[in-house]
Amino acid sequence: MSKFYTEDHEYAFIDGDIATIGVSHHAQDQLGDVVFVELPEKGTTFEKGDEIAVVESVKAASEVYTAVAGEVIEVNSLLEDAPETVNAGAETVGWFIKIKMSNTADTEGLLDETAYQTHIAD
């Protein structure tokens, strides 16, 4: 599995042509206690850069965009009743959706883990 990030703190973890999408540990920390995540329905298709979700804390809300194009094949149902899962493990149990990528070249231009760590340290 290879890990990619956007400058806006979304991640796409790639395993073959399947991308797991979510927000970074740093992003959940900035948002504070997550109280709600609005997710798309299974079967929806997205272009790279489309808004796929909204993540909300008590006093803030953020749109989440996908770094890769494709069809949603799985939605993290845990988040519906337990949005705090995002705080508990943003990059593990708190993932948002899985996308079957329509173009594996979409990862070009994304940050790798080291580059992302440098980006947020700035």
Binding site: V35, F36, E56, S57, V58, K59, A60, A61
Partner: peptide, 8 residues
């Protein structure tokens, strides 16, 4: 209140 104007 994330539905509301002062945040959204």
């Amino acid at each position: 209140s994330t539905r509301e104007q002062h945040i959204r």
